[in-house]
Design a protein around this nucleic acid. Structure first.
Lengths: 228, 228
DNA sequence: ATAGACGAATGACAAATGTCATATTTTTAA
DNA sequence: TTAAAAATATGACATTTGTCATTCGTCTAT
């Protein structure tokens, strides 16, 4: 089994405030887990008795919409911690988490993470500011959803995805999303997203190869998405 | 000058975890302030050296959109605390706050609220869970913005406003918003909101009298807004 | 290898929404 | 009080976006 001192300190930039002995403690009680692409790691509404630290892989955080349609709220990758809000607040999980590819994670039981939370002020402070940042992000998304067109949001989403996941060796955005998932990020009908992608392809702003998307003209995309 | 023991305990349901002596301490250093309708209490991006506790009045929390258009994110009334995220995180204020009517508030300097925050675990815990709730609300709004039609969101907004502010003696929703503000809540063009209001009036779902809105048929409105 | 299933793409169309112009009403300020 | 300004309301229209139907392509399981 791995060692948190190496893993967490190296990877959890924002959550790397544990002391050496705390790390050892957490390391001792964690359980390494893996998930396959498509696995539901957390389910909206369920209770949780520990948190997950993501070592490897990408996942989407989703919320069920009014008509049972999933809304993608956020993406998570290596270094992030999942489920701490539910554990600390003793509340049901607020978002489902689904693996977008095979993943490696560590499960840390509730008791142990709570202990660290109460012992280490920096750790709790970090979690607090993490939630605050998420809230700021969410407010920005609300504003964009309310005020931008689908086309603008799609352009922004593509830039965001590239920014978040980088590109593979061929220059394609390094995350595989179905058109349906992409349209859920943007907040539009699947056909609309497809149509706009085709247009952008025709205009040589992006190129498409199966599900993979490559940004060809970043400047134009920025102009569409941000107006400059 | 007022007394926090009476004011906070009575009004700040969620923030009423201070001990008697802490209340006295806070009480001693607070400053009573008042705002006129339209006053900007906090400005997005500015720094803050203390928090406000709202004693009386309603305000809107807004964010500047991509084209300089204001987006209403949230409303606040008596009992809520403003600015604590900025103060605790030592960050710029993330949302502007504007008085919707004349208001009474208390200003508590940074130092003093920080002291309480560090002394009183329940207080800090409450603030944490408050941010978590706001985040959950925000995620719900994102989902609705992405998946509901303008008509559905308007219906929902009217029910929300009545739920939040109650009604006056004549049965009208007890908050005065311009059509522009209402459309900002809904996330649509002002004309669209006006048109839909007119339709709902024609269908006898609501009645309009100047800016004031009365819900006539709650059941239909719920069906429109929530699908049942 | 092939049928079946699923996702992607596209056309055709309808519906929703935004924009602009203008009239009407209300509010504000001199 | 009255003129000007602002907000509300409405019509006309363009554009965006969603829905449904269909085709095409790819993946998968047998």
């Amino acid at each position: 089994m791995g060692n948190c001192q190496r893993c967490i300190v190296k990877e959890l930039s924002k959550l790397s405030t544990l002391t050496s002995s705390q790390l050892k403690q957490v390391s001792a009680c964690k359980t390494a887990t893996s998930f396959k692409k498509g696995d539901v790691i957390l389910k909206e509404g369920s209770m949780l008795n520990g948190v997950y630290c993501i070592k490897e892989g990408k996942c989407k955080l989703t919320k069920l919409g009014p008509n049972g349609k999933e809304q993608i709220i956020k993406f998570i990758t290596s270094g992030d911690m999942l489920g701490y809000r539910a554990v600390l607040g003793e509340e049901p999980v607020s978002l489902s988490v689904v693996a977008l590819e095979d993943m490696a994670a560590c499960f840390i039981p509730k008791q142990d993470i709570l202990t660290v939370f109460h012992q280490n002020k920096n750790f709790s402070k970090n979690l607090f500011s993490n939630v605050c940042n998420e809230l700021n992000d969410a407010n920005t998304i609300i504003t964009n959803m309310a005020q931008k067109t689908v086309r603008e949001r799609l352009a922004e989403a593509l830039l965001f995805l590239e920014d978040t996941f980088g590109h593979d060796e061929d220059g394609f955005i390094d995350v595989v999303l179905s058109r349906e998932e992409l349209s859920s990020v943007v907040g539009t009908a699947t056909e609309s997203a497809i149509r706009l992608l085709s247009e952008m392809k025709k205009d040589r702003i992006i190129s498409l190869e199966g599900k993979r998307i490559k940004i060809l003209d970043r400047a134009v995309l920025k102009r569409i998405g941000f107006g400059f």
